[in-house]
């Protein structure tokens, strides 16, 4: 069986290899791929959309429709994790409360929310270990910087490498860092499941909604130029603003989905006792 697999792999490798004999030289500026469509993007990006970063203008405008589905793919992944893993009725499990001052742990048999609102007690996991003070301090210090950087990456996608996906991932990472360095419960207190679900739907809704707005205003789907009818700018600037709008939507979705995938996967869908 192993040789069959090897044969399959060698076979596909040889087909791929055979094709490379015909390839243009690597890095050749005159290869067909660089001559047919891509010069148009490079030459027209500034006058069409006033976005210097051509990757952004292709991503969100010329091929913006692809990117909409790309965001939907992310949304689908979050949705799939929710549908597959989320368990709404947890099994009867023991609950642990820790008295903050004295460090005494109460072990209550079965599920209870008895002391949840109390100031003196905190709920803890069965595998609880005292959170490390170094880790806690450092992540508390770093998280604001990470979030600021994420917002910078989102907002500065027009002029430098960056944009919705990158910024959204960094933003999500800051919240995941919080969940890792404290525990899942702390992360969920900051942004709970319902918020994540609504955010992930809102982000893609913003993207598709901007597209549909263009449709309602009488032009093609995602033709941002028509937004100049409702915004006090000319069509080129309207395209730039439209790109920014969808980038924000993308960032929101990516952030929410990344965090919720982490939450569901690390806690096996119970959103209790995570990693």
């Amino acid at each position: 069986m192993r040789y069959l697999y090897l044969l399959l792999v060698v076979l596909s490798a040889s087909v791929l290899f055979y094709a490379t004999l015909d390839f243009p030289q690597w890095g050749d500026p005159n290869s067909p791929a660089s001559l047919h469509v891509s010069p148009v993007y490079l030459q027209r990006s500034l006058e069409d959309t006033s976005v210097p970063n051509v990757v952004t203008s292709v991503l969100a405008d010329y091929r913006g429709y692809d990117t909409m589905f790309e965001t939907t793919v992310i949304f689908t992944a979050g949705l799939a994790c929710f549908v597959l893993l989320r368990v709404f009725a947890p099994k009867m499990k023991d609950t642990y409360y820790r008295h903050i001052q004295s460090g005494v742990v109460l072990h209550i048999k079965g599920q209870t929310t008895l002391l949840d609102g109390s100031r003196d007690f905190e709920r803890i996991d069965s595998r609880w270990v005292p959170a490390d003070i170094i880790l806690k301090t450092i992540s508390r210090f770093l998280i604001p910087f990470i979030q600021l950087f994420a917002l910078y990456v989102v907002a500065h996608g027009h002029h430098s490498p960056g944009g919705g996906f990158q910024g959204g991932v960094i933003l999500g990472a800051s919240i995941i860092l919080l969940s890792i360095s404290f525990d899942l419960r702390t992360g969920l207190e900051k942004i709970h499941e319902r918020g994540l679900g609504l955010f992930s739907a809102t982000g893609v809704f913003i993207y598709t909604g901007i597209g549909a707005l263009c449709l309602i205003l009488g032009k093609e789907f995602l033709n941002y130029g028509v937004l100049s009818k409702i915004l006090p700018v000319d069509p080129v600037m309207a395209r730039s603003l439209g790109i920014f709008g969808v980038e924000v939507g993308v960032a929101i979705t990516v952030m929410a989905v990344m965090v919720s995938i982490y939450n569901y996967v690390s806690s096996e869908g119970r959103l209790d006792e995570g990693l």
């Binding site: 490390d132 170094i134 880790l135 450092i138 992540s139 210090f141 770093l142």
Partner: peptide, 10 residues
């Protein structure tokens, strides 16, 4: 300098 020693420590 902030993050690498913290990670090692953890």
């Amino acid at each position: 300098y902030l993050s690498s020693p913290t990670a090692t420590h953890c």
